[in-house]
Design a protein around this nucleic acid. Sequence first.
DNA 1: GGAAATGTTTGATCTAAATCAAAAACAATT
DNA 2: AATTGTTTTTGATTTAGATCAAACATTTCC
Lengths: 244, 244
Amino acid sequence: MIIYFGMQSAQLNKEFNKKSRCSECNIRPYSFCRCLQEENLKEFSNISSDKKFQDKANIFLQQDDAKNIYNITEGNVKIYQLIDDGRIQIIGFLYPGDFFGSYKNGKYNYCAEAIGDVRVCVFEQKKLDEYIDKNMVLAKELLNQTSHELTLAQDRMGVLGKLDATERLAKFLMNISEQRKRIGWQNNPISLPMIRQDIADYLGLTIETVSREVSKLKTSNIVKVLSSKQIYINDFNKLSNLSK
Amino acid sequence: MIIYFGMQSAQLNKEFNKKSRCSECNIRPYSFCRCLQEENLKEFSNISSDKKFQDKANIFLQQDDAKNIYNITEGNVKIYQLIDDGRIQIIGFLYPGDFFGSYKNGKYNYCAEAIGDVRVCVFEQKKLDEYIDKNMVLAKELLNQTSHELTLAQDRMGVLGKLDATERLAKFLMNISEQRKRIGWQNNPISLPMIRQDIADYLGLTIETVSREVSKLKTSNIVKVLSSKQIYINDFNKLSNLSK
DNA sequence: GGAAATGTTTGATCTAAATCAAAAACAATT
DNA sequence: AATTGTTTTTGATTTAGATCAAACATTTCC
């Protein structure tokens, strides 16, 4: 910051007190940044940058050199692996507060694509790593969050390996509802940011099976389909029982 | 350590130089402990303890209060989730150098059971956490390892969600072979510590399908089945191609 | 507002893997 | 070595969900 001689006192004050991006970030309580103290936010803002992506934009591809960690501040991101011929496995649908990318050099383990308009904070691995050395509370927070991500990934093995189509869809809807609640959004009705094909590729099913399972839930009055992407859950208990 | 008055000088010296368990551990280069310096090993030995389990012994159950982190020094461990009625999803087969359990209080995310005779180092969460505060290199190592575990878990979603039975078994055999190589064991023939039922529960298949797929690999001369748990891979290229 | 493109639903048929069944191989115990 | 229990293999049948096909709904864009 450069302070010119003759600057007005009020103006000067304003410069000093200028809010950093992080200090004004309203998703921070739900993100790994929540471990930081107020006084560290200014510095932390400086090691990251704000970036926007529009619907269907690739944030990175699996074969790209892994350079960054991304933290979502607005919108949804899908991360997915391409098997070979064109088979897709969607790893996850991410929400504000979720982070993705890689700490390690090398390749990313998945592709990342914006669903709708997305805003992220981008951290270079190197800078984040340097910051961690200075503020170890962040290392512990990242360890806790990554460890929690791992338990979620393990839970998904059970879904993909052992649940039938009905159970998978029920669990999916429950999970979305809980995710929304976690970040302070209404948990009912739920808005599905992704299309049916994405749900299918996430659950290891086909689009037709997903559609049929939604219809079954509708017929049995467990959900009301307000529109294809707006689902009202009439009976959380029944849905939860179906989801195992 | 109690030093009695009148102790001989040679004896005294021996006490001081006594090797710690960690310093004599030969799996350390393959485990998260590899990040520690020689001079820290004695202290690190003191915050963990050695424990043995025999075949089929439960190390912990999913509903147990999560208190420990375990590090395998000998043998194999299977970690698995029980869905409800009795459906089982095996999350992973662990090898010497792998760790499991939980840093966080709460419940474990899976059950852990010994396959054959097993030796582990047990760390109490609290003690490990205190140690991390003193030696931050361990936090970074755990973050890197957990982050790597997460990528493996994500890869498994593709296997369970998108691969057919032939591809699943081929990938499984390749993975075992690579895992063995990683820790300096011969990568061919491979020894499978687990029974067919476990392979089925790991791959989201039935025992019959696993058996049939093994037979197909045998018939097509890609592997030789020395015994049901000893597999010689005749053609790594073909097996790798099958595994996608 | 209408055409084109994209996404969703429903029906008919097919198939990979599950289930059911039984024999064979192997290991453990007396 | 015979008995018992466990694990694996192979065959016959069934089935959940995939694939194929077509209509229907919704969004996008001149």
